[in-house]
Amino acid sequence: MSLEKAISVEINGIDRELTAPANETLLDCLRRHGHFEVKSGCEKGDCGACAVQIDGEPVDSCLTLAWTVEGRSVTTLEGLNDAENPHPLIAAFLEHGSVQCGYCTPGIMIAAEAMLREKPDPTNEDIAIALSGNLCRCTGYTKIFTAVKQAAGVLRQGGGDD
């Protein structure tokens, strides 16, 4: 294995130091440091299970090298799951049964949360474009769309703001 290096990165609002070799993806690095909410799926940018936000932008962590996030901020699903103030997506997904096996859910929430910041009142097409890189093989997406719309409504009424 090539030489490991320490990289400073903010994860879910907390300054952390990760160690990684040059050829390690952010996905593998995060999971090695205990972030099991970041899921490993296709490892080629098709499924979106490994999505995290870098400086607020959703990316596939399987296609990101750990060293390249030095000095940046990374948000995983746990960053949306603040104990005192969970993101409205979480309650909406539970209420509508938008989670079956749950493997795609962390990536879908990461992708949907970014879309809701840009489009507070999304159409079905907005949601489809935002979630086009997230594959769910259980739900058929209908309940996911319903939950995203409900969360958008909660946010528009000022609920769940940080």
Partner: peptide, 12 residues
Amino acid sequence: ARVFGGQMVRNQ
């Protein structure tokens, strides 16, 4: 751009 990959791939 609208039909390119998925959101995460478009961002990268």
